[in-house]
Computed example of a mutant assay.
Amino acid sequence: MTLAERHQIILSKLQKDQYINVVDLCKELNVSSVTIRKDLKLLEEKNLLYRTHGGATVNNPYTVDRPVNEKEQIMSAEKNNIGLQAAALLQENDSIVIASGTTVQAFARNIPQNLNITVITAALNVALELVRNPGIEVMQLGGLLRKSSSSVTGIYAENVLRDFFCTKLFLGVDGIDLEYGLTTTNSMEAHLNRQMISCSQKTIVLADSTKFGKRGFGKICGLEEIDQIITDKGIPDTVLQHLERSGVKVTLV
């Protein structure tokens, strides 16, 4: 097989699956990992793909911080459907944590009016959605306000969380990478999210399909630390299969 033929196969697989793995390519093309990594480097130099740890993707995997009003406009219908599905998981007298993000805001908006629950949240926009719901007791965490996410971070919020244990955490993220795990664009927010995970019995990630294959600056946790992901049907089949093999329950809406 010529170099050009090998590159054509790599690009065809990438176009189909959105992500390719070095190990799988070695087996299929019967070449060494050194050869495949050289191929991926050449293709990246031609702006035909982005290399990641252990493979490559067709999409730019690095996320950037965006204002919350801009993020609200992205995949809004899908976020609302994800929020509806997440709200169906709530039970009477639940004590839950809601992190930050526009997808968890959609979840807060869809919580039934007649449900009595307690919510701890870092996000101002989430708290404003919940204050109109008479059945919900809201505990707003304090700390340094991130204007781009309308949420707080820092040691004050983390210290408060150490005094509680909740049934569920509903977590929004900026990126889900199959090898690197869950990330956000802010390291302080990532640290607060880790504290939220440690004080919750179950971690449920709410993320639309554009978040998969992305990687932010701050790592929250690995895939092994989450229980469920609720997302839309836009995620590639290969990603879905990998998540299910990793023991993560995936709900598609």
Rank of each mutant, 00 (worst) to 15 (best):
V131C: 13
E189A: 13
S209A: 13
L130W: 02
C166S: 11
V138G: 06
R194G: 10
V119C: 00
R146D: 07
L171A: 08
L124G: 04
N116H: 13
V126K: 00
N125V: 10
F164K: 09
E189G: 06
M188E: 14
L206N: 03
K147C: 07
S149E: 10
T121R: 01
T167Q: 14
T184W: 04
L144F: 12
F170Q: 05
M139L: 12
L144M: 11
H191L: 15
A123M: 00
F107K: 01
N114F: 09
M188H: 15
A108Q: 02
S198E: 14
I155E: 12
F165G: 03
L169E: 08
P112H: 06
L171C: 06
Y180G: 10
V152Q: 01
G172R: 04
D174F: 06
E189D: 14
I176M: 07
Q113M: 11
P112Q: 04
S149N: 05
Q113S: 13
R132T: 12
K168I: 07
R146G: 05
I136T: 12
V126A: 04
L128V: 12
L124T: 08
L128S: 10
T203A: 11
N193D: 15
N125L: 10
Q140V: 13
L169G: 04
C166A: 13
I117H: 03
N125I: 11
I197N: 05
M196S: 12
N114V: 05
T183F: 05
Y156L: 15
V173D: 05
A190H: 06
N125K: 12
E129I: 10
I117T: 02
G143M: 07
E158T: 14
G142Q: 05
E189W: 07
L124P: 00
A108F: 03
L141G: 01
C199W: 06
G172C: 09
S209H: 15
N193I: 06
N133F: 02
K168P: 03
G135I: 04
T167E: 09
T203Q: 10
A190W: 08
E179H: 13
M196K: 04
R132V: 09
S151N: 08
P134W: 05
L141W: 01
G181K: 10
L169K: 11
N193W: 06
L141D: 02
S209K: 09
D177H: 15
Q140R: 13
G143S: 07
V138K: 03
R132I: 09
A122I: 01
S150Y: 09
S151G: 11
Q201N: 14
C199R: 13
S187P: 08
G135C: 05
V119P: 01
L161A: 10
L206Y: 05
G154R: 03
I136E: 02
Q113N: 13
T118M: 00
K147P: 02
G135H: 09
V126R: 00
F107W: 04
H191W: 09
Q140E: 06
I120P: 00
V126D: 01
L144I: 14
D174Q: 11
K168A: 11
I136N: 01
I197D: 03
V205E: 08
A157S: 14
G154L: 07
I176Y: 05
